[in-house]
Design a protein around this nucleic acid. Structure first.
Length: 769
DNA sequence: GAGTTTGAAACT
DNA sequence: CAGTTTCAAACTC
């Protein structure tokens, strides 16, 4: 597997460029230059710096070269391809399974094709001025993005184009898949990418529509849109709808989608990064591209689209993302999109009003958070993580697996600790680190079954149809997959609507239902960070456990499982949580708060660090033992935080306690998450600048983790996130400045705060809905 | 692999 | 909101 990655990457690159398809595209579209120009324009502000840094970081000369010329598109395409190729070698599996089962898988595997296609699409968006859709047509034509073009111009065209691309590029697994990827609910995104090309707005609209459609229920985004979206959705699924969507997109909303895209983009980016780690050269390029994309996405929707489009493969992923981000997304989306556009366009001038939303991924986050321990990893790989992060993880996973068992092993070893599985390392591990390193572990965990390879077996639900929180898969926001031994499972892509509606219902009842149960760092960060007042202890556990017989020393205890100490929220009896008790936590949290109060920013960071340290030490003695641990924790925490902050909060953010509360709690949660993310980010910066930065800045949330996870896990996992960091650092460093807005969520910057706030706010708004 | 234990989720 | 039931994971054998 490993070897393939690199070779694959090159191959992919060669494919992309050398391949007939590529040449074809080139011939067709003059756009590329434009794109580049576009990118330059849009990106300039952000990207120029970021990208540069990124490129430098990720470096792969050829990659850069590729990117630069093509910029968004080709880069994406390349990236996607590279990734694909890289992953592809491995990923074959994902691709297949992905259709139905894995969102992520789709993203990862499918991506190649889709990516290519999407990439082109994506590229278009970037190319186009933030919002210029008209351009897309051109780009579309010329650019690889058939999609874009079609979208802009004609539906049929788009489809055809896509098809051609796909066909040309590779035989995408199936046209159907393609459609799914492209058109399916999630797929829409890809289309969205096209729209993006057309214009940020238009595209954004489409995306949102699509997204909403796909996740429609979840998003609830635009109530008004729902119907349309659904319709759109369906149509999109059929692919035929593409045109319709496009028309719609062009017509309506824009931004919302973008927000997602950004998230996806981030995720994608992360994934790419991961890929890069694996296949440095090819990946590098892809990374750069990704970064660019991301940047753009952040700044400009296009990138996002690209990413998304790429992710399209993981269409579901998107769906998940949406779902996850769902509410927030819906609400946020607009904002986020705007934000993104703004950010992207900062220069350009989208309205800066809203911070980016979340890239979030509620589900993902949740999944990560919850599952991470065991499931995350498992799910990701096989299943279908709904969330981008998951997808990324998958990719990573696959890559990891393929690329580096080393990571796996290393990671596995590290992860091996109970913590690992659960999250000892925490969620963080779960998210990014875990994704990679953890995933294996998790797998292991679950794997008790023995499925390391595939991962985890997931659930074995019999009566719940995998539509209740009892189901780990469902709770994690992922579709059940092969490994599952469930009966009468409805948690499958095929029943997406049901799943979404069910999710909505559950969330309605308990807004936090899908929120990560435990948020280590993030919580801590939150607490320590700015809102110490809120719930100091909350840091570790949102709800708190209610253990009576397990003394919080077994996995029965969510706190323990999550690798976190019990908090004041816990109602456990005879708590012996080795990760920390409530009292201790409370004290710690209080201390942290105080500290945080004393020195808000730096203080926060420090506190976070301290908390982290405390938590880690407490939580994961093992981690402590392992050298890597610290980094992991940090990284993980950072990663996690971002993810959570961006993704989860938005969605889940509600507190179980009440709806009324939910809104407030959501806000608080989001804020916390944001804060935590910030804090984490700051802390990370200090400790794990690289990783953190990467995660935070680029993907702000979800994606970061996954990417990180991928990369990290494979190569560095064990050791630390070094690989990511490498690229990440550079990227981060450079990118950070530029990204702030993007990363903002995760990043510490004031900008972040704004975004966070908005983000949180949006979620709140959504929540009520 | 089957059975038991456990605590969360769901229900009333 | 509290109590009970249901459920599936975690755990044990």
């Amino acid at each position: 597997m490993d070897t393939p990655d690199r070779p694959a990457a090159p191959l992919a690159a060669s494919r992309a460029e050398d391949s007939p398809v590529f040449s074809f595209i080139n011939n067709l579209s003059p756009i590329e230059p434009l794109k580049s120009a576009y990118n330059a324009n849009s990106l300039q502000g952000y990207q120029s710096i970021n990208i540069t840094s990124i490129s430098s970081i990720f470096t792969s000369p050829h990659d850069n070269a590729h990117k630069e010329p093509r910029l968004p598109k080709s880069p994406l395409g390349k990236i996607s391809e590279s990734e694909v190729s890289a992953e592809g070698s491995k990923t074959d599996k994902p691709a297949k399974s992905s259709n139905a089962v894995r969102l992520f898988a789709c993203t990862s595997t499918v991506t190649q094709e889709t990516h290519t296609v999407t990439c082109s699409d994506v590229a278009d968006p970037p190319t186009g001025p933030p919002c210029d859709l008209a351009q897309p047509a051109q780009f579309d034509n010329g650019s690889p993005d058939h999609n874009t073009t079609p979208c802009h111009g004609v539906r049929s065209d788009l489809k055809q184009d896509k098809c051609r691309k796909l066909d040309i590029v590779k035989t995408v697994k199936n046209t159907v898949e393609k459609r799914k990827c492209l058109f399916s609910t999630e797929i829409q995104l890809p289309d969205g990418s096209l729209p993006v090309n057309d214009g940020g707005d238009v595209l954004g609209c489409e995306w949102s529509d699509l997204i909403s459609t796909t996740s429609g229920e979840l998003l609830a985004f635009d109530s008004t849109m729902d119907d349309h979206q659904r319709g759109m959705h369906l149509a999109a699924k059929n692919a035929e709808s593409c045109g319709y969507l496009l028309s719609k997109l062009t017509g309506d909303v824009e931004i919302p989608d973008r927000a997602h895209p950004s998230a996806s983009a981030q995720v994608y980016y992360q994934e790419l990064v991961m890929a890069e780690d694996q296949t440095e050269n090819t990946q590098t390029i892809s990374t750069e591209e990704i970064q660019d994309n991301i940047y753009e996405a952040n700044g400009c929707i296009p990138l996002d689209y690209k990413v998304e489009s790429q992710q399209q493969r993981g269409v579901r992923r998107r769906c998940l993302v949406f779902e996850a981000a769902g509410f927030s997304n819906s609400v946020v989306q607009k904002e986020t999109v705007e934000d993104l556009s703004v950010a992207a366009c900062k220069g350009k001038g989208h309205v800066p009003t809203q911070p980016r939303g979340l890239r979030g991924i509620g589900l993902h986050l949740n999944a990560l958070a919850l599952t991470p321990k065991g499931k995350m990893a498992c799910q990701d790989p096989m299943s279908s993580a709904l969330l981008p992060s998951l997808a990324s993880e998958k990719d990573v996973h696959g890559k990891l697996l393929s690329a580096g068992e080393n990571f796996t092993h290393s990671g596995g070893e590290l992860l091996e600790f109970p913590m690992d599985d659960c999250s000892a390392g925490g969620f963080p591990l779960n998210d990014h680190v875990s994704s990679q390193s953890v995933s294996p572990q998790k797998k292991r965990r679950k794997t008790d079954n023995g499925d390391d390879g595939e991962a985890c077996k997931r659930c074995s639900c019999k009566k719940s149809k995998c539509l209740k929180l009892y189901c780990e898969c469902f709770a994690a926001g992922v579709y059940c997959s092969e490994p599952c031994s469930c009966q009468g499972c409805l948690n499958k892509p095929i029943h997406e609507e049901i799943v979404l509606s069910t999710r909505k219902q559950i969330e309605f009842r308990n807004p936090l239902a899908f929120a990560p149960k435990v948020i280590r760092m993030s919580d801590a960060g939150l607490e320590t960070g700015e809102d110490p007042n809120n719930t100091p202890a909350s840091a570790r556990h949102k709800r708190g456990c209610n253990c009576k017989k397990s003394s919080c020393l077994k996995k029965y205890c969510e706190c323990y499982q999550g690798g976190v100490g019990c908090s004041s929220n816990c109602r456990c009896e005879s708590c012996k949580n080795t990760f920390g008790r409530r009292d201790a936590e409370t004290e710690l949290t209080e201390e942290m708060k105080q500290e945080g109060e004393e020195t808000e920013n730096s203080g926060k960071e420090k506190e976070n660090d301290q908390q982290k340290a405390n938590v880690q030490s407490e939580d994961h003695p093992l981690l402590d033992l392992v050298p890597i641990t610290p980094p992991f924790d940090l990284a993980s925490s950072l990663l996690k935080l971002p993810n959570f902050s961006s993704a989860k909060p938005p969605r889940p953010s509600k507190a179980r306690s009440g709806n009324s509360r939910s809104s407030a709690s959501k806000a608080a949660t989001t804020l916390q998450s944001c804060k935590s993310s910030k804090a984490a980010g700051s802390a990370i910066n200090e400790e794990m600048p690289d990783i953190l930065k990467e995660v935070n800045s680029p993907s702000s949330g979800v994606k970061t983790t996954s990417p990180n996870g991928k990369r990290v896990s494979p190569p560095h996992n064990a050791l630390s996130i070094s690989p990511n960091r490498k690229g990440g650092r550079k990227l981060i460093l450079k990118s950070i400045p530029s990204f702030p807005s993007l990363t903002g969520d995760s990043n510490s910057g004031s900008a972040m705060n704004n975004t966070d706030n908005t983000f949180s706010a949006s979620p709140l708004a959504l929540g009520p809905s």
